[in-house]
Design a protein around this nucleic acid. Structure first.
Lengths: 350, 350
DNA sequence: TTTAATTCCGTGCACGTTCACGGAAATTTT
DNA sequence: AAAATTTCCGTGAACGTGCACGGAATTAAA
């Protein structure tokens, strides 16, 4: 081993009198080596401070692992479509050389489509899986199989009770509601708040925004106990219905100046907001969808709180890659992403 | 080339009838190849969609380039110390296998120390350099040498007029002042604002915060024309002097409720702020120093606008690595980082 | 003790690039 | 036309690891 070069496997062989093959076997502890040799090699590794050369390793094993992403699929401009862009945004140009990513989409309102996607996913024989769980029981079936096959998996967006996941990347939903309330009120007393919600059939579906709403309500109780919180329900597929609902509400409550939605669909209100401009109104929503950001820079929306679904995916892939390629465990198992506050004055550099 | 394997250099040789060596020469366009063969190879590359195997490449050329970071050095808890942590935060575990990073620190108030650091830096024979420029003329001397030696360099934090830099990572200073004003006032009329500044001898030193102040003033003119903006100067090394200055100011102007600083030192005011709590006061500062973030979660400071000096360093190293190792040019030359808004409600997950 | 079974280990090629070296081919000079 | 350049190109040995194969050493069975 030259002066300041890194030690290689061959240095270990020289120190132990053993051969490449044996050293390799203990490095990947795949057995077929005597206790005596095993310890000798371990000792040598310690002494030399040996670290495997990732480049040689990747070259030899011939690249291309597959990471499967099991995640809802939705139209361009939607939350899940934004998340999907994170698959190609892997920070790591070198890891991407050895890792392929494939998206297995499913319909977030149809448990059966999850089954089908999982089926295809398993056929692709992945080395790691990213899961955005929408249905608890369906997800449990998948993870139990993965655990049996010793395929590592990580959750994004939300997670289910489970002991075997490698990591989780998501937003602290309760706290995001708290933050949202603070941004909406500016920490000052407010009389009326309108919460716009989406009606859906919740059969068996876990809705993470309930936690967000809880955080919101708690903040309001603590800081704004006298504020009246109104709710209206809308159907995202019915634009005229939305405008009608808004008109009706504001006819009855003309002195409401604060509007909030807890999901990523604040852009649905933009047509109405544009038609009814109003000074001093404050509108807060979530997630950096293209439509939302446009509304923000035009001033229709005041604040957007962003959880970066795309970054969640990217980090999940990163964690899996490091696990698969380098054998590393992530530093933290549960990773709560930063909540970004976006206004019209910092949205440009996003 | 097997069915869905990636094409290699050998595939190109088969297609062109040339040899490894020649193909390699055109890939790294280092001459010694006829026009005819050059074009043949280029055509084959195009057709096959050839991309070099990074792992094989790194292995063959034998790792370990050096990236030098020429950046002020300061005490723990300071702006530049935070920036320095970004050197080890390289996103890319594989790149770090082939790249070493070394910090050459200098005293940001002493132009001569920059010379000394640059000297040492040159002796280390780096493959790439990250520069945080504090002195214009000193920096120009360095970059001209680097250009001559064809060593790529990138600026962080601020940049000087220069045609040869590979990339720049920094904050949009003017816009950050604008954003700051919006966060301070909440978009509502304000009567008095106190700007706390640091007195220093500006001989030859470029102070990027002047742009920030300009953005701040412009916002105030546009949105708050009647507001009076007061300035006081403090000496960071004199804590009692700071408290005295604050006391004096507030004795004369008891109805000021908005305080702002344009550099990273808002924590200097915390002792005074703690002693004089006041409901409805708003304090805005910059940068995610540990001390600043503590002040934020305690409520002494209302908002922190963060430019992530550590991420700037990390991205600079990333860009240089990709250039050196992969020969890639960065997507954008001037990169304005996102400005994060931190309040006590989202600081925990930072 | 011999043979069979098992456990353990070394050898050698493969992965795709890089680069120094030497030599063939083309061009220029005598 | 031969010699001297110059231009261009092919060869082959690294780089460090992974893994299949076969064989040696050890233990168990006969």
């Amino acid at each position: 081993m030259a002066q300041n070069e890194k030690p290689t496997i061959m240095d270990i062989t020289r120190l132990t009198g053993l051969s490449k093959g044996t050293v390799d076997r203990v490095l990947h502890n795949r057995g077929e080596v005597s206790k005596k040799s095993y310890e000798a090699v371990m000792k040598a590794i310690q002494e030399l401070g040996y670290e495997p050369n990732v480049f040689a390793s990747m070259l030899a094993k011939g690249g291309s692992h597959l990471i499967a992403v099991l995640m809802p699929e939705d139209a361009p401009g939607s939350f899940w479509h934004l998340a999907a862009t994170g698959m190609n945004k892997s920070k790591d140009p070198l890891l991407t050389g050895g890792v392929k990513v494939e998206h297995f989409g499913y319909n977030p309102t149809d448990a059966e489509s999850l089954r089908a996607a999982a089926e295809k996913m398993r056929d692709s024989n992945p080395s790691g899986v990213v899961i955005a769980p929408m249905f608890r029981t369906g997800t449990e079936m998948i993870t139990s199989v993965l655990r049996e096959l010793k395929i590592p998996y990580v959750f994004i967006d939300s997670k289910i009770d489970d002991s075997g996941y490698l990591a989780y990347f998501g937003m602290p939903m309760y706290r995001s509601g708290y933050l949202c309330a603070d941004q909406l009120t500016g920490g000052r007393p407010v009389n009326n708040v309108l919460v716009v919600r989406i009606q859906r059939d919740l059969q068996g579906k876990s809705d993470p925004t309930v936690n967000r709403r809880a955080g919101f309500m708690d903040y309001m109780h603590e800081h704004c106990p006298d504020c009246v919180i109104h709710n209206i329900m809308i159907d995202p597929s019915d634009p005229v219905g939305i405008e009608k609902a808004m008109d009706e509400y504001f006819e009855a409550n003309p002195d409401t100046h604060h509007i909030v939605m807890f999901n990523s669909r604040i852009h649905l209100l933009v047509p109405w907001l544009d038609k009814h401009p109003q000074r001093g109104r404050r509108v807060v929503g979530f997630d950096n969808l293209e439509a939302n950001m446009q509304a923000l820079s035009r001033g229709a929306v005041s604040v957007l709180i962003c959880q970066h679904p795309d970054e969640q995916v990217a980090m999940a892939i990163q964690a899996l890659s490091e696990r698969i390629v380098l054998g590393k465990h992530p530093a933290r198992r549960d990773n709560f992403m930063h909540m970004d506050i976006l206004t019209r004055y910092n949205v440009d550099f996003y």
